[in-house]
Design a protein around this nucleic acid. Sequence first.
DNA 1: GTTCCCCTGCGG
DNA 2: CCGCAGGGGAAC
Length: 291
Amino acid sequence: MPELPEVELVARYLRPHLLGRRIARIATTRPSYFFLTAPALLQKQLPKRSVTSLTRIGKYLIAGLDNQQSLLLHLGMTGQLIMASVHNPRLVTSKQKQLREGSTLTEFVPDEHTHLSVYFDDQGPLLYFRDTRKFGKVRLLGVGQSDPRLDKLGPDALTISTSDLVLASRSRRAKAKALLLDQTVLAGVGNIYADETLYSAGIHPERPANALSESDCAALAKTIRSILRKSIRAGGSSIDDYVHPDGSDGSFQTRFNVYDRQGEDCRRCNGKIQRIVIGQRSTHFCPNCQR
DNA sequence: GTTCCCCTGCGG
DNA sequence: CCGCAGGGGAAC
């Protein structure tokens, strides 16, 4: 689900619902590589802590705690952060919405994919971290402790500059698509926004990075920032699952020019959108508009 | 830099 | 049955 716009929207939604609240207890599923910090340790450390901040860096979220520790979260491919209360039922996934219409389901019920449930002292809505594929991550960072994953991140994609891209592309033979997906070059762009960016900038996804001119880099930087902001304004992209912690959907998926549009007409010329694979990721582009 | 793998579910 | 999925890290 989540690339930068979706993670940013999750952060914006959660902040007013999370900041200042004190954790009473948590419930977790069994240890798995989803838990970079063992569930038992989380259960020992999190209770009695208050959440003091929520920051997004690239596709990561960092919840600051009142003892200067912090909780590092990544949603992976299918992660969802859900704010829900049994007293004020909220719907969760499109699938559950469908289920609800034809059944008696009236509230979010934590299931086997709900790996973390956070209860608060105020008895208010709970925070759930649900993730079917378990590609998401949870890690408790001690005081002053950093994480190699964060340390390696490049500049945030929302503020990427031309010179950032010029510098990174010069020495790389990787394809342009791979460049945009490389989180050490810029943090936050994923498969959808990489394809959409390359289309809007008129750059072929297989163009070698070191063959990008300075004006190409300028176009890329400007387009990345612009598309991510537009998506945020549209509530992000919702494909199979919900985006927002209250179960509502974004709408940017209706404005895709290339992503998942293979075989369909290009909106700019009359060519057909192609699909190829780059670095194990599906890649969509217009062979006519992108060179 | 590219390939394989982690995991579950969906649709053809 | 197979391929595919919004992510990323480890291994060649």
